[in-house]
């Protein structure tokens, strides 16, 4: 599962690159887990390392 941490500044780079349009940002990124397919593109593209992938 993709988790956004407190480090998020809200720059929305993750939203711009998400292939499933599963991210909205207004001050902080929010993941729509119904649309998210855990591709981790957001994890890799986050400039401040604020997004993690957790095995559940």
């Amino acid at each position: 599962m993709i988790v956004v941490t407190e480090k998020c500044v809200g720059c929305a780079t993750c939203m711009l690159v998400c292939p499933k349009d599963a991210i909205t940002v207004e001050g902080k990124a929010e993941i729509n887990h119904e649309l998210c397919e855990n591709c981790r593109k957001c994890v890799n593209y986050c400039p401040v390392e604020a997004i993690n992938f957790l095995k559940t």
């Binding site: 809200g10 207004e26 400039p47 401040v48």
Partner: peptide, 11 residues
């Protein structure tokens, strides 16, 4: 389309 805030490590 997008609201982007910039601070701290990405200011």
């Amino acid at each position: 389309l997008a609201v982007q805030s910039f601070s701290d490590g990405w200011p």
